[in-house]
Every structure is written in structure tokens, then in C-alpha cells.
């Protein structure tokens, strides 16, 4: 059964757990100067946010690819995070940075997530709930939506007061070095809630991957399940974009790798493998950048560079399975 590789899925997961434990330990301890009472909480929040982001991106990408029946599109390529940025910009444009600052950040985040769910529901549901559509049409629609959202945000950013723009930029250009920690608790709660909902459908994802008609034949309520998955994806993308800003190709990178090494089609294995890979990439990558190369560049640039190459390679190989 495992003729091409010697590792069983469970071994892959154990190796990845070990790797992520190593990278987290390294990140927490290497180059620590001064009191541990400061270092550990300081780095701990960074780790926590990277784990949350890794989990959110990996799970949202794999689930999105399952409901869209392809392995090239990701929520970011389809413009989900551009939509989140548009909502952020629109809020500042409409009520001003003063008004936004007055609001409770958790409440604000909740409002943004709700808006995100409503809009992504309207925009994307028809794409996936109907009969199968061509991959090229989907990519095209995604690019057009992405450009539309970015242009609208760009327009509003040019029109608003420069001071407000600075506030906005501060919110949007977050990187892994400068995580918005005020949102950490509410993000963790949102991720936990989506995971609890998503867990109940774990066995359905494998069937959904068989395509709309086969899954209906096997008794899955396709439209309802796809809608639920898209809502979960919208929440997870909101979490990751709120914490670190858009990382376009990271999801594609970890999802493609996860399909390769998981050695199984089962989501119960692919999802943890993708999540662990994401954590290893983020924490390990951040460690290498910060401690070894002493770069002050954002990890997301490196990730997008590598991920973009993988995306092109997948497109050229025509590997749309």
C-alpha cells in the first residue's frame, strides 16, 4: 500500500510534532538575554500567534481546496484576505480612526468577521455550490475579485486623511514581528469555536472531495456543508489576516506539501500534517531569519517568494488534481 514511501501517516505526524517542538524550543531559548520573566512571555505571545496563524491558514486552505475540488486555488488567491482589508479600510473610511479606536477591539473584530462571512457567503457560494466550473474561470474570478477589492481599498486609502491612513497602515502592514497582541485572545477563541464546529464534519470532508455529484449520491447535504465550510474558512482567514496581514501563497505551500507527504486522502491526517508543517515553517523560518541571518526582513516576503514559485510550478505541471 505504501509502496513509494516507507513512512506511515502516523510516523509523518510524529516527526512533524518533533520538528515543531524543536523549532519552538529554539525560538524560545536561543539568544535570550536578560530576565526569563520578560523573554518567555514576550516570545511566547509571538509563538502563540504564529501557531494560530499557521493553523488558520493551513486548515482554511485545505478545506477550501476540498470544497472547490482543486489543489491550486486558495482563499488568498481567491481574494478572501483582500476582502478583509477592504472591510478594514471601509470601516476607517466610514467612521474614522477615532471612531475605530473608540470601539472595543474584540467587538470590532467580531463585526469584521460577521461582515466577512456575509460577503464571502454571497460572493463565493454560487461558485462552488453549483455544478462544477472550470478551474480557469475560478482563477480568473478570483483574480478579478482580488484586484477589485485591492483597488477599492487603494482608492479609499488615497481619499482619507493622511493621519487616518497612518493608523490604517499600522493595522494592515502587520508582520510576524509585530503581531497585534490585543487580538490574540479573541482570535484564539474564534479558532477554537471554528475547530469545534469543523470537527463535527470531519468525516464529511473526505466525501466532499469526491465531487458534488458523488457526495450527494452518498447522502451528504452538499449545499449546506459547502456553506458551513466557507463560513469556517472566512473566520479562519479573518483571524490570520487580522493577526499578521495577508500572506498570499503560504497556504498553497503548506497544503501542497501536506498532500505530498501525508500519504493519505483522509482529512483527519492531511489537516494535522498541514497545520504542523505551517507551524514548522513559520516558527522555524522566523527563528532562522531572526537568529541566524539576523535579517530584519518580514518572513512573509520569503514565504510568498517560495510559495509563488510552487504556485507557478503547479500551474505549469497542470497538476490540478
Amino acid at each position: 500500500m505504501l509502496k513509494s514511501r516507507g513512512l506511515r501517516p502516523i510516523q509523518v505526524i510524529l516527526i512533524l510534532v518533533a520538528l515543531s517542538a524543536v523549532s519552538i524550543t529554539l525560538f524560545m531559548t536561543v539568544g535570550a538575554k536578560g530576565s526569563w520573566g520578560f523573554v518567555l512571555p514576550f516570545r511566547g505571545t509571538k509563538i502563540l500567534s504564529m501557531v494560530l496563524v499557521g493553523y488558520a491558514i493551513a486548515v482554511s486552505t485545505v478545506l477550501f481546496q476540498t470544497v472547490s475540488h482543486n489543489r491550486i486555488l486558495t482563499p488568498s488567491i481567491m481574494g478572501f484576505d483582500a476582502l478583509y482589508i477592504l472591510i478594514q479600510t471601509g470601516l476607517i473610511f466610514l467612521i474614522g480612526s477615532g471612531g475605530v479606536a473608540m470601539l472595543d477591539p474584540c467587538l470590532l473584530f467580531a463585526c469584521q468577521v460577521v461582515l466577512m462571512i456575509v460577503f464571502s457567503g454571497i460572493l463565493y457560494r454560487w461558485l462552488f455550490s453549483g455544478s462544477s466550473r472550470s478551474l480557469h474561470l475560478l482563477i480568473l474570478v478570483g483574480i478579478v475579485f482580488g484586484v477589485l477589492f485591492r483597488s477599492l481599498s487603494g482608492f479609499m486609502q488615497r481619499v482619507i486623511d493622511p493621519n487616518e491612513f497612518v493608523v490604517l497602515q499600522d493595522r494592515l502592514f502587520a508582520s510576524f514581528n509585530n503581531v497585534d497582541t490585543s487580538l490574540l485572545a479573541v482570535s484564539a477563541a474564534a479558532v477554537l469555536a471554528t475547530s469545534l464546529v469543523g470537527w463535527r464534519f470531519m468525516h464529511t470532508y473526505d466525501v466532499l472531495a469526491l465531487g458534488r455529484e458523488t457526495s450527494i449520491n452518498l447522502g451528504v447535504n452538499h449545499t449546506r456543508t459547502v456553506t458551513i465550510v466557507l463560513v469556517l474558512v472566512a473566520v479562519l482567514v479573518s483571524v490570520s489576516t487580522a493577526l499578521v496581514g495577508p500572506v498570499t501563497f503560504f497556504g498553497l505551500l503548506v497544503a501542497s506539501l501536506a498532500y505530498q507527504i501525508a500519504g493519505s486522502h483522509k482529512h483527519a491526517l492531511v489537516l494535522p500534517v498541514a497545520t504542523l508543517l505551517a507551524i514548522v515553517c513559520l516558527v522555524g523560518g522566523q527563528f532562522v531569519l531572526e537568529r541566524i541571518f539576523a535579517f530584519d526582513t518580514a518572513l512573509s516576503i520569503v514565504i510568498d517568494f517560495v510559495g509563488g514559485i510552487v504556485f507557478l510550478a503547479l500551474l505549469i505541471r497542470g497538476n490540478t488534481r
Binding site: N217, G219, V220, N221
Partner: peptide
């Protein structure tokens, strides 16, 4: 309910493409 029908009636269409291996 769709899952009840799935125990009574099944269908196979002409072209079936699957994204997972």
C-alpha cells in the same frame, strides 16, 4: 433527508473526476 435516500437509491454519472488520490 439526503442520507436516508442514499440508502435507497444510488446514481453513477458519466464523468467522475476526483481531486484526491
Amino acid at each position: 433527508p439526503s442520507d436516508l435516500l442514499a440508502k435507497r437509491l444510488s446514481i453513477l454519472r458519466q464523468d467522475n473526476r476526483i481531486s484526491s488520490r
